[in-house]
Protein backbone atom coordinates (compact mmCIF):
# COMPACT_ATOMS: atom_id res chain seq x y z
CA UNK A 1 0.00 0.00 0.00
CA UNK A 2 2.84 2.32 0.95
CA UNK A 3 4.64 1.44 -2.29
CA UNK A 4 1.47 2.21 -4.28
CA UNK A 5 1.25 5.59 -2.50
CA UNK A 6 4.82 6.43 -3.44
CA UNK A 7 4.17 5.41 -7.05
CA UNK A 8 1.00 7.51 -7.16
CA UNK A 9 2.82 10.51 -5.68
CA UNK A 10 5.53 10.06 -8.32
CA UNK A 11 2.97 9.99 -11.16
CA UNK A 12 1.25 13.09 -9.83
CA UNK A 13 4.56 14.91 -9.37
CA UNK A 14 5.34 14.24 -13.03
CA UNK A 15 2.24 16.22 -13.93
CA UNK A 16 0.84 13.33 -15.93
CA UNK A 17 -2.41 11.56 -15.35
CA UNK A 18 -3.23 7.92 -15.65
CA UNK A 19 -4.57 8.33 -19.16
CA UNK A 20 -1.04 8.37 -20.47
CA UNK A 21 -1.61 6.45 -23.69
CA UNK A 22 -4.42 8.62 -24.99
CA UNK A 23 -4.25 9.60 -28.64
CA UNK A 24 -4.97 13.01 -30.08
CA UNK A 25 -8.23 12.76 -32.05
CA UNK A 26 -6.84 12.67 -35.57
CA UNK A 27 -8.77 10.85 -38.29
CA UNK A 28 -12.16 11.90 -36.98
CA UNK A 29 -12.78 14.66 -39.47
CA UNK A 30 -12.68 17.60 -37.07
CA UNK A 31 -12.79 20.93 -38.90
CA UNK A 32 -11.96 24.04 -36.90
CA UNK A 33 -11.51 27.73 -37.68
CA UNK A 34 -8.36 29.67 -36.81
CA UNK A 35 -7.98 33.25 -35.57
CA UNK A 36 -7.84 34.52 -39.16
CA UNK A 37 -11.10 32.83 -40.09
CA UNK A 38 -9.43 30.05 -42.10
CA UNK A 39 -10.91 26.57 -42.00
CA UNK A 40 -8.38 24.16 -40.55
CA UNK A 41 -8.67 20.40 -40.53
CA UNK A 42 -7.29 19.02 -37.30
CA UNK A 43 -5.66 16.24 -39.32
CA UNK A 44 -3.43 18.86 -40.96
CA UNK A 45 -1.43 18.89 -37.74
CA UNK A 46 -0.71 15.17 -37.79
CA UNK A 47 2.99 14.47 -38.16
CA UNK A 48 3.96 17.53 -36.13
CA UNK A 49 4.92 17.86 -32.49
CA UNK A 50 2.13 19.80 -30.80
CA UNK A 51 1.72 21.80 -27.61
CA UNK A 52 -2.01 22.10 -27.05
CA UNK A 53 -3.84 24.20 -24.45
CA UNK A 54 -7.57 24.48 -23.79
CA UNK A 55 -8.94 27.88 -22.88
CA UNK A 56 -11.79 30.38 -23.08
CA UNK A 57 -11.00 34.03 -23.57
CA UNK A 58 -13.46 35.29 -20.92
CA UNK A 59 -11.58 33.34 -18.26
CA UNK A 60 -9.83 35.96 -16.13
CA UNK A 61 -7.55 33.90 -13.97
CA UNK A 62 -6.55 30.35 -14.86
CA UNK A 63 -6.72 30.29 -18.69
CA UNK A 64 -4.34 33.27 -18.90
CA UNK A 65 -1.91 31.24 -16.79
CA UNK A 66 -2.20 28.41 -19.32
CA UNK A 67 -1.55 30.82 -22.19
CA UNK A 68 1.35 32.45 -20.33
CA UNK A 69 2.90 29.04 -19.64
CA UNK A 70 2.56 28.06 -23.31
CA UNK A 71 4.21 31.35 -24.19
CA UNK A 72 7.08 30.57 -21.81
CA UNK A 73 7.47 27.17 -23.47
CA UNK A 74 7.52 28.87 -26.86
CA UNK A 75 10.16 31.37 -25.77
CA UNK A 76 12.37 28.68 -24.28
CA UNK A 77 12.11 26.64 -27.50
CA UNK A 78 12.84 29.81 -29.47
CA UNK A 79 16.00 30.38 -27.42
CA UNK A 80 17.10 26.86 -28.34
CA UNK A 81 16.22 27.37 -32.01
CA UNK A 82 13.47 24.75 -31.79
CA UNK A 83 10.28 26.84 -31.86
CA UNK A 84 9.71 26.32 -35.59
CA UNK A 85 9.70 22.56 -35.08
CA UNK A 86 6.68 22.66 -32.81
CA UNK A 87 3.10 23.80 -33.47
CA UNK A 88 1.10 25.49 -30.71
CA UNK A 89 -2.67 25.14 -30.54
CA UNK A 90 -4.98 27.04 -28.18
CA UNK A 91 -8.41 25.49 -28.57
CA UNK A 92 -11.40 27.27 -27.05
CA UNK A 93 -14.22 25.40 -25.37
CA UNK A 94 -16.43 28.50 -25.50
CA UNK A 95 -17.23 28.78 -29.22
CA UNK A 96 -20.38 30.78 -28.50
CA UNK A 97 -18.25 33.80 -27.54
CA UNK A 98 -14.84 32.89 -28.93
CA UNK A 99 -15.29 33.72 -32.59
CA UNK A 100 -12.18 34.03 -34.80
CA UNK A 101 -12.03 37.83 -34.37
CA UNK A 102 -12.14 37.46 -30.57
CA UNK A 103 -9.34 34.89 -30.69
CA UNK A 104 -7.35 37.26 -32.87
CA UNK A 105 -7.71 40.05 -30.31
CA UNK A 106 -6.79 37.62 -27.53
CA UNK A 107 -3.62 36.67 -29.43
CA UNK A 108 -2.82 40.35 -29.80
CA UNK A 109 -3.22 41.34 -26.16
CA UNK A 110 -1.24 38.32 -24.99
CA UNK A 111 1.53 39.03 -27.51
CA UNK A 112 1.29 35.68 -29.28
CA UNK A 113 0.11 37.09 -32.60
CA UNK A 114 3.71 37.28 -33.80
CA UNK A 115 4.11 33.50 -33.58
CA UNK A 116 3.20 32.12 -37.00
CA UNK A 117 2.99 28.52 -35.79
CA UNK A 118 0.50 29.29 -33.02
CA UNK A 119 -3.13 28.65 -33.97
CA UNK A 120 -6.09 29.72 -31.87
CA UNK A 121 -8.96 27.48 -32.86
CA UNK A 122 -12.72 27.50 -32.54
CA UNK A 123 -15.64 25.81 -34.28
CA UNK A 124 -19.35 25.23 -33.76
CA UNK A 125 -20.57 24.08 -30.35
CA UNK A 126 -21.26 20.49 -31.44
CA UNK A 127 -17.77 20.03 -32.88
CA UNK A 128 -16.09 21.56 -29.83
CA UNK A 129 -18.17 19.47 -27.42
CA UNK A 130 -17.21 16.31 -29.28
CA UNK A 131 -13.54 17.31 -29.48
CA UNK A 132 -13.34 18.09 -25.77
CA UNK A 133 -14.99 14.78 -24.95
CA UNK A 134 -12.43 12.93 -27.08
CA UNK A 135 -9.66 14.77 -25.26
CA UNK A 136 -11.12 14.16 -21.78
CA UNK A 137 -11.39 17.90 -21.20
CA UNK A 138 -14.33 18.39 -18.87
CA UNK A 139 -16.34 21.52 -19.58
CA UNK A 140 -19.40 22.74 -17.72
CA UNK A 141 -21.01 26.09 -18.43
CA UNK A 142 -21.94 27.88 -15.20
CA UNK A 143 -25.12 29.82 -14.51
CA UNK A 144 -25.83 33.13 -16.22
CA UNK A 145 -24.82 36.11 -14.09
CA UNK A 146 -26.09 39.65 -14.32
CA UNK A 147 -24.45 43.02 -13.81
CA UNK A 148 -26.37 45.95 -12.28
CA UNK A 149 -26.97 47.23 -15.80
CA UNK A 150 -28.57 43.98 -16.87
CA UNK A 151 -25.67 42.63 -18.92
CA UNK A 152 -25.21 38.90 -18.78
CA UNK A 153 -22.13 36.75 -18.60
CA UNK A 154 -21.20 33.22 -17.61
CA UNK A 155 -18.14 31.37 -16.48
CA UNK A 156 -17.01 27.87 -17.30
CA UNK A 157 -15.81 25.07 -15.05
CA UNK A 158 -13.08 23.26 -16.94
CA UNK A 159 -10.09 20.97 -16.89
CA UNK A 160 -6.75 22.77 -16.58
CA UNK A 161 -4.62 21.07 -19.21
CA UNK A 162 -1.71 21.33 -21.62
CA UNK A 163 -0.98 18.33 -23.86
CA UNK A 164 2.23 17.42 -25.63
CA UNK A 165 1.53 15.37 -28.77
CA UNK A 166 4.15 13.47 -30.74
CA UNK A 167 4.37 13.05 -34.52
CA UNK A 168 2.38 9.84 -34.40
CA UNK A 169 -0.51 11.62 -32.73
CA UNK A 170 0.05 10.16 -29.30
CA UNK A 171 -0.41 12.38 -26.27
CA UNK A 172 2.94 11.74 -24.65
CA UNK A 173 2.55 14.06 -21.68
CA UNK A 174 -0.05 16.15 -20.05
CA UNK A 175 0.27 18.81 -17.45
CA UNK A 176 -1.85 21.00 -15.30
CA UNK A 177 -1.64 23.97 -17.65
CA UNK A 178 -1.62 26.71 -15.05
CA UNK A 179 1.03 25.16 -12.83
CA UNK A 180 3.44 23.23 -15.00
CA UNK A 181 7.20 23.53 -14.72
CA UNK A 182 8.44 24.84 -18.05
CA UNK A 183 11.56 22.66 -18.00
CA UNK A 184 9.43 19.53 -17.57
CA UNK A 185 7.44 20.43 -20.68
CA UNK A 186 10.61 21.23 -22.64
CA UNK A 187 12.07 17.87 -21.63
CA UNK A 188 8.99 16.05 -22.96
CA UNK A 189 9.02 18.07 -26.19
CA UNK A 190 12.73 17.43 -26.81
CA UNK A 191 12.15 13.74 -26.24
CA UNK A 192 9.77 13.55 -29.22
CA UNK A 193 11.38 16.06 -31.57
Amino acid sequence: MKRFGILLAFIISCGKGLNYTQNFPFGKGYVLVDQDGNKVKLDEFKGKVLVVGYIYTHCPDVCPLITENMKKIYKKLEDKGLANKVVFLSITFDPRRDKPEVLKEYAKIYGIDRYKNWYLLTSDQKTIDSLMKDLSILVEIGPMEFTETGDTTYFIVHTDRIHIVDRKGKIVAYFKGSELKIDDAIKEIRRVL
Partner: peptide
Protein backbone atom coordinates in the same frame (compact mmCIF):
# COMPACT_ATOMS: atom_id res chain seq x y z
CA UNK B 1 -15.83 47.43 -16.35
CA UNK B 2 -19.50 46.84 -15.63
CA UNK B 3 -18.91 44.99 -12.38
CA UNK B 4 -16.12 43.98 -10.01
CA UNK B 5 -16.46 40.87 -7.88
CA UNK B 6 -14.12 39.12 -5.49
CA UNK B 7 -13.60 35.56 -6.76
CA UNK B 8 -11.54 32.57 -5.84
CA UNK B 9 -10.30 29.96 -8.31
CA UNK B 10 -9.95 26.45 -7.00
CA UNK B 11 -9.74 22.89 -8.21
CA UNK B 12 -12.64 20.55 -7.50
CA UNK B 13 -12.48 16.82 -6.77
CA UNK B 14 -12.63 15.99 -10.48
CA UNK B 15 -9.61 18.15 -11.22
CA UNK B 16 -11.67 20.89 -12.84
CA UNK B 17 -11.03 24.57 -12.31
CA UNK B 18 -13.94 26.41 -10.74
CA UNK B 19 -14.47 29.93 -9.51
Amino acid sequence: CKKVEIHKSYEDKRGRIRM
